[in-house]
Computed example of a mutant assay.
Amino acid sequence: MTGIHKRHWPGDKGRPALALHCMMGSAGYWGPISRRLDGRVDLTGFDMPSHGRSGSWVAGSEGPDFHTAVTRIAASFIDRPLDLIGHSLGATVALRIAVAAPEAIRSLTLIEPVLFAAASDAEQEHRDRVISGFLAEGRIEDAARAFIDVWGAQAFDDLPLPARRMMAEQIPLVAEADDTLTNDRANILRDGGLEAIDAPVLIIAGQQSPKVIHGIADALAERLADVGRATVPGAGHMLPLTHPDETAGLIAVSLDRA
């Protein structure tokens, strides 16, 4: 893994915030969100390894897994309590940090957290088997198509060829993160962990997202001390990209609660 590309949207220096993007995304999509927040936070983001302008991820038997590596990178940006915002995979990283260091969190906004270990779901288990099967057979593009057609902003075959090629290169990272997301390898759901988060938490879901997302939100909300819930009408999993007005408005509510 080489350099990590950092992004910064200036705002209130007394209100630092960190935003974490989804699998196969980049920190760039927080730009429109930041503009709508109109400087109320000093927002930082970064492109995860093998995403955006960051260097490639190379898995190693002695190094950390992908989720752990991203968590360590995110934690390196935190030197005082801040507002932590995460989407999809980024939301699970944000939650992992909040469980490990609740004192570092001023507010926590979780957009479509994909911590599948929190809520068993037969449809999601089937999706995992399909993607794993394609990867085992070397059918990389089919695996990417199966993933994006559920979790993307538009169908895989409607994307430009460069985007399809990039996602085919990234799809092994989905399998790399599976043990953390599906089996809770990082022990995010440990007894007392979620309950120790005393900062206000907002969980946001898209109305049209797979039902496992709503099950996860239910399971997490049941254990959090100070939690709000919001559903964006007509939105799917990629709501920060497709519904930036609504997403920014809800993040603002979360900031106000802190």
Rank of each mutant, 00 (worst) to 15 (best):
V150A: 09
E123T: 10
G3M: 01
H21Y: 04
Y29Q: 06
P172Y: 09
A122T: 13
D42R: 05
F134C: 14
L84H: 02
V150M: 02
S56I: 00
L250Y: 03
K211S: 12
I203G: 07
G133I: 11
A69W: 00
V232T: 09
G152Y: 10
A217W: 01
G228H: 11
F77A: 02
V232G: 04
R96G: 15
M48N: 04
D245T: 10
G28Q: 10
A153D: 09
S50Y: 05
S88Y: 08
L37M: 13
P16W: 06
I197Q: 10
S120W: 10
G228A: 15
P162K: 09
P16G: 04
I171E: 02
H214L: 09
T247D: 06
D79F: 00
D142L: 13
F46Y: 12
R165G: 00
I204F: 05
R145A: 14
G249H: 08
I131T: 06
T247K: 10
M166S: 06
V227H: 00
Q124A: 13
G193I: 03
L161Q: 11
E62I: 01
A155F: 05
G31R: 13
D142E: 14
E137M: 10
A27E: 07
I188N: 06
H214M: 08
F77M: 04
A258E: 03
D142V: 04
G52I: 07
P113L: 13
G25N: 14
V58L: 08
F77W: 10
V150L: 08
Q208C: 05
R165A: 10
I251W: 02
A104G: 04
V150E: 03
G45A: 15
W151K: 12
E246I: 01
L135C: 05
V201P: 00
G90S: 09
P162A: 06
L224R: 12
H243Q: 13
E176S: 14
D178Q: 15
V212S: 07
V212F: 09
M48Y: 02
V253I: 10
I4G: 02
G215T: 08
T109K: 13
A252G: 15
H51A: 10
I148P: 01
K211T: 14
H126T: 11
T68I: 03
D226T: 10
H67A: 11
G90W: 02
L82K: 03
F66D: 09
L241E: 14
S120C: 03
A91W: 00
N183G: 09
L173K: 02
I33E: 10
P244K: 05
A205T: 15
D218S: 09
R7Q: 13
I33Q: 02
T231N: 02
G63F: 01
R145H: 07
L135P: 05
V174F: 15
T182S: 12
L181S: 11
V58E: 12
E195L: 11
A119E: 14
T242L: 04
A91H: 01
I73P: 03
A74D: 00
P10D: 06
E123C: 02
E141K: 11
A258F: 01
R35D: 13
H51P: 00
A175T: 09
G45Y: 01
K6P: 00
P102K: 08
